[in-house]
Design a binder for these strands. Structure first.
Lengths: 254, 254
DNA sequence: GATTATAGTGGACTATAGTCCACTTGTCAA
DNA sequence: TTGACAAGTGGACTATAGTCCACTATAATC
C-alpha cells in the first residue's frame, strides 16, 4: 500500500473475534468503526470532527476535511438529480469545486465514494447487529438471531440498493475476487460465522459444520447483483426470498 | 435491440423445457446451441462454416467470417502472451488487423469476446450435461446427477478461470443485475431447476421446495468471483468446497 | 453480368477514468 | 514567530472504451 494512496480501513471490530464469546455478552457491544472512507474516522460519523491521527500523529488538515464534505455533498446531490450511473467522477469534482487529484486522493474510485455515502446506514446496521438486535434479539434463540441478521441484511440491501449496486460494480471492476477481501464483506462473513457457531452451541444447528465455508455460501444468495435481479427483474417478493432461504437452511434433501 | 448491434444469442436448448420430462429421456439429448458469439452460429463450433441466415435470408459475408476468426485468433494469442487484463480491445483490433468498428460489431465488449473463446469448452460442458453425464450419469440417481452437475461446473470454472473472471467483470460493468439475465446463466439456472425437480420426483429431495429460488441460491456459492476467491485467496481445496456444499444441501439445521 | 440493397469496414472522434507532479497550505516544534 | 516539511491541491495529461459514419464488398435478384 503506497504512502499517499487512500487506505482501505480494516479496523472494524468484529463480533466475537478473536475469542468468540456469547453473542449476548455485554462486553461485545462494542462501537463500530467506520469502514468505508479513505481515512480512519471517529465512531460518530463522517460528518464529525476528525480526531484520529495519521501515522506521524498529525491531524487531518481542516481544508481536507472541508473538501471531503464538499465532495460527499456534491455527490449526494448529483446522484439524486441524475442517478448514480449518469454521474462521472469529473462531474463530482467539478460540482464540489475541487480538482480531480483531490477527489481521487480521498476516494480512489466511485465505489468507495458510494460506500462513504452509505456510511451512516452501514453503521446503524453494524451497531444493531453488535447490540444483538435489541429486545427482539435478546428474546430470540441464536438461530433466531441468525434469521434476524439476514432479515436486517435484506432490509439494508433494499434501502441502499442504488449505492450498493454502484459500489459493487465499481469494486468488481478492480478485480472480481477482491470484492470478497473487502472489510465490509469480511465483516458480514465473520458475523455470519459467529452466528452459526452460536446456533451450533445452542443445539439448533448440526455440529461439525464447515462454518467458514457456510458463512460464504449462505451469504452468496444475498449478493447484491443476484438479490436485486430477483427483486427487480424476476419480481420475487422479500417474503418469497426469505421463505426460500429458510428452505435452504433447512436443507433440500429429504 | 438495435438492428446493427451484436445480438445476444438466446436460442439455447434447455433441459426439460417447456415441458420438463425425465432427465434420462432420449428425446432430450438435444444439440447445444452456441450462446456466446454475436450471431447465430451452427451447432458444430465457432470455427465451422456459417449457415444460419440473417433476418432477410442473406448469408454472412465471407470476409466477415474471416475477420471473426482473425479476431479470435489474435485475442487468444495476446491473452496467452500478456494475460487477459493487460490486453485492450484496441490491441486486439490492431493485432487482428481490423478496425475497431469491426471488432465491436462482433463483440460488443471484452466479456463477449472472452465468452466466445470459451465456446468450445462451454459446448462440451453443455453437451455432457444434456447427455446425462454418460455412463456415470445413467447409473446415478437424480440427486447423484445434480451432484455430478455441480462437480462438472466446478471443473469448468477451474479450467476456464481466467476467461470466466474477465467475462464476469466485463459483464458486471454493463450492469450488475444483467449478468443474471444472460443466456449462459439462464442455462445454468434452468438446468439446476430441472435437476432439483427430478430429485424431488425421485423422493430424494423434500417436496414443496421453491425450485426457482433454490436454483439461484444453490448456484450462488459457485459464482466465479466468490469461487475463485475461496480457491486462490483463502486456499480452499475443491474437496473442501464440495464437502461444504454437500453440508449446505443437507441443511444446517438440526 | 449488372444492379442493388445492405452487411461489413476502419479509423477519426468523443467520453471517462485515472495518473502525475509542480505548486500551495497547514501543522508542528524550535 | 517562523522555518521545515508533510499533507493536500488542481488541472493538464495519458490510456482506454466505445461511437459514428462515410465508404466498400458481396450476396441475392433481375
Amino acid at each position: 500500500m503506497s504512502e499517499d494512496k487512500p487506505e482501505e480501513q480494516s479496523n472494524i471490530i468484529y463480533l466475537g473475534k478473536p475469542e468468540p464469546v456469547g453473542f449476548n455478552s455485554k462486553t461485545r457491544f462494542l462501537p463500530v468503526i467506520n469502514n468505508t472512507v479513505a481515512r480512519p474516522l471517529p465512531v460518530t460519523s463522517t460528518q464529525g470532527p476528525v480526531k484520529p491521527a495519521t501515522r506521524r500523529g498529525r491531524d487531518e488538515r481542516c481544508d481536507a476535511v472541508q473538501n471531503r464534505q464538499k465532495v460527499l455533498q456534491a455527490a449526494r446531490q448529483l446522484f439524486a438529480e441524475r442517478g448514480i450511473q449518469a454521474v462521472t467522477m469529473s462531474d463530482i469534482a467539478e460540482a464540489a469545486e475541487v480538482g480531480k487529484g483531490t477527489l481521487y486522493r480521498r476516494f480512489a474510485h466511485k465505489g468507495l465514494l458510494c460506500q462513504a455515502l452509505m456510511d451512516h446506514n452501514t453503521q446503524a446496521f453494524q451497531t444493531e447487529v453488535l447490540s444483538g438486535f435489541g429486545e427482539a434479539g435478546r428474546q430470540a434463540t441464536p438461530l433466531g438471531r441468525l434469521q434476524l441478521f439476514l432479515k436486517r441484511l435484506m432490509a439494508f440491501t433494499e434501502e441502499n440498493a442504488g449505492l450498493l449496486r454502484a459500489a459493487f460494480e465499481a469494486n468488481i471492476d478492480k478485480g472480481s475476487t477482491e470484492f470478497y477481501s473487502q472489510a465490509s464483506y469480511d465483516w458480514l462473513r465473520m458475523t455470519m460465522a459467529v452466528l452459526i457457531k452460536e446456533a451450533i452451541a445452542s443445539g439448533e444447528c448440526r455440529p461439525n459444520l464447515d462454518i467458514d465455508y457456510l458463512a460464504d455460501a449462505l451469504l452468496a444468495p444475498f449478493q447484491v447483483g443476484l438479490y436485486l435481479h430477483q427483486r427487480e427483474v424476476r419480481g420475487f417478493s422479500t417474503e418469497r426470498i426469505q421463505a426460500g432461504f429458510e428452505q435452504l437452511m433447512r436443507g433440500i434433501l429429504l
